[in-house]
């Protein structure tokens, strides 16, 4: 086998195999067949964000990682454990706050949110920046509402100087293999329940 297997898992399979197939009462067993006392654990596998694929058109996470203006967002996504979501087939529309947007937050907010105990809250904030579906600019019409992955709605406004979503001006867009990314200069906090 090309990679190493988890020995625990092998033991589990082995033990199960013995149980299922060892139907013959007279079967002799040599000592090596005796299962050990170890208990099995589940198999560790990495999520889709670990897929090595330098050839495909970049996905949303790769676009964020490759943008030096989005290093804080990427760190937040990692802290929230949402990397796999952003490489999934999607399609997703992501409103991506740049580093300047995070700088506008009150001091200490980000440090607080990236603490392990606030993982869920941080994830909720990030999901508030993503809409299922790929909304290209021509699909964003004045007055329409976008349903966000957090379960909330945000409003689209078309003004003379550009398109605004949830009050933030869309500063630019990057098409991704699995959707589209709009750069914004605000971090959105979901409305309180």
């Amino acid at each position: 086998m090309m990679k190493h297997t988890t020995s625990m898992a092998k033991l589990l399979l082995f033990a199960a195999g013995l149980f299922l197939l060892g139907s013959c009462q007279q079967a002799q067993q040599d000592s090596s067949t005796t299962p050990t006392e170890e208990t099995a654990t589940s198999i560790e596998t990495k999520g889709q964000s670990a897929v090595q694929d330098p050839d495909s058109k970049p996905n949303i996470l790769q676009i964020a990682i490759n943008s030096k203006d989005h290093s804080t967002l990427v760190a937040a996504v990692q802290a929230a454990g949402l990397e796999d979501v952003l490489v999934n087939a999607g399609p997703l529309t992501v409103f991506a706050p740049n580093n300047a947007a995070f700088d506008k937050l009150p001091e200490g907010t980000l440090e607080e949110l990236t603490k392990p105990e606030n993982k869920e809250k941080l994830a909720g904030i990030i999901k508030f920046h993503a809409s299922p579906g790929k909304y290209t600019e021509n699909m964003l019409k004045d007055g329409m509402r976008l349903f966000q992955a957090s379960g909330h709605y945000v409003k689209v406004e078309r003004k003379d100087d550009g398109i605004y979503v949830n009050g933030s001006k869309l500063l630019g867009s990057v098409p991704a293999s699995n959707g589209i990314v709009y750069v914004i200069e605000d971090v959105w906090l979901p409305p309180e329940e």
Partner: peptide, 13 residues
Amino acid sequence: SRSGGALSSNVAE
């Protein structure tokens, strides 16, 4: 053999 002999070593592994 159907006696479990196929598993009498590290076959499954």
